[in-house]
Amino acid sequence: MYLPNQNEFFIDPARCIGCEACVQACSECDTHKGHAMIHLEHVDRGQSTQTVPVVCMHCESPTCAEVCPADAIKKTDDGVVQSARKPRCVACNNCVLACPFGVPKMITDFELMMKCDLCYDRTSAGKKPMCASVCPSGALYFGPRAQIEQLRPRSTPVNKFQFGRQTVATKVHMMAPKGPAKAQYVDVTDAMNETGRGQRISLDILSTMYVSEEQP
């Protein structure tokens, strides 16, 4: 049963400290007990400390559901894209490969695709998703929009993402800089040649060390 509320999900990867509290908490959710559905990616582990928490963005027109040959992925009336329906999923991996955010997980043992469902047992009852309830840095935030806008005056929520020629609108928002020119969308493919934050610093340190060792 869905209880409408004013809360929305906001992700702010720049705030992530890679503590993995979200990963641990996620596996305690009743709808996917024992399996963490959140991804915590190290951008470039050897060079940078930057980490990215990735939850399902719950697209308005979910590519995963459209490419599912078994019609197993459904969206609830309140816009939450659910894990594949157990009787229908044929474990073909289409959704895993097609999701532009790289979210669905194929649980090979179960022959079933599972993904973040916004802790539907909790959010449909007005509670926070597990990950947002434990995130210490606010990288994963679940609450009223007015509150996050007040807490982060330099940021603004954006829910449009560009992948090549495709624009994807989502239920989950990403915090983007407010000014000087407000971002209308996050161009993901534009970051193809970007490297992890801190990489330049670490490379500098490494090169300094290398040079200092070379010096007599």
Partner: peptide, 16 residues
């Protein structure tokens, strides 16, 4: 899929 997840973070970093 892994690079897609990484790119999401990099894209936000690029905006900042």
């Amino acid at each position: 899929p892994r690079c897609r997840r990484v790119l999401l973070g990099l894209a936000q970093g690029q905006l900042w």
